[in-house]
Amino acid sequence: MRTYIKAENVCVDFPIFNAPHRSFKKNLLRVATGGRISSEARKGVSIRALDAIDFEVREGERLGLTGHNGSGKSTLLRVLAGVYEPTAGTIVVRGRIASLLDISIGMDFEASGLENIYLRGLLMGLPKQVIRSKIDEITTFSELGDYIEMPVRTYSSGMVMRLAFSIATSIEADILLMDEWLSVGDADFVKKAEDKLKSLISRTPILVMASHSPEILKEVCTKVMRLEGGRVL
């Protein structure tokens, strides 16, 4: 079974329940940033974050997403991750997904680094024995030493990110999703992290990454999709 992503006419509309209805009464407003805000008497205010998106990603391809703030990059990544089911259109994602969108979500700062490795591992869908087999690798890579037994609240913010990064990049998957190129730690660690991330990407059949940096997109991606107001440009 080959890994691929195919999106057809994907639309995502967010209902906004506490928006002032009156000010949007009968027109369709076009704003400088973000998706289009529409208002229909019956349905209330909603924001069209993605508007009829079509694309396809095949094995070996690295898709870069770019565009202004609020252009729909992150929403599209979340649709790919399976967080939002499109309000219209279809999306087919074949392959195991590893989402590096927010690598520190679900961390418990009162718990030790070790406990957090288990917690994050379970959240990412790994069985306990697989997590156990990765503990050494993660601990070594993060260079936290004895701190791994200490509560995460005693870590500096850089150390927290190092731990989160080490856990997130220890997962093997078919599709990697990234919101901005991950860069963590001090000068030495940044280099080491970059190497690890690059080797992970080279082993993964598909990468979809959102970024504002043209250099990174050029270096990493095989094709780039520009979004604006929820549409492909």
Partner: peptide, 9 residues
């Protein structure tokens, strides 16, 4: 909310 918006489960 945090988990739901990041990790589908």
């Amino acid at each position: 909310e945090g988990i739901i918006k990041q990790i589908p489960m």
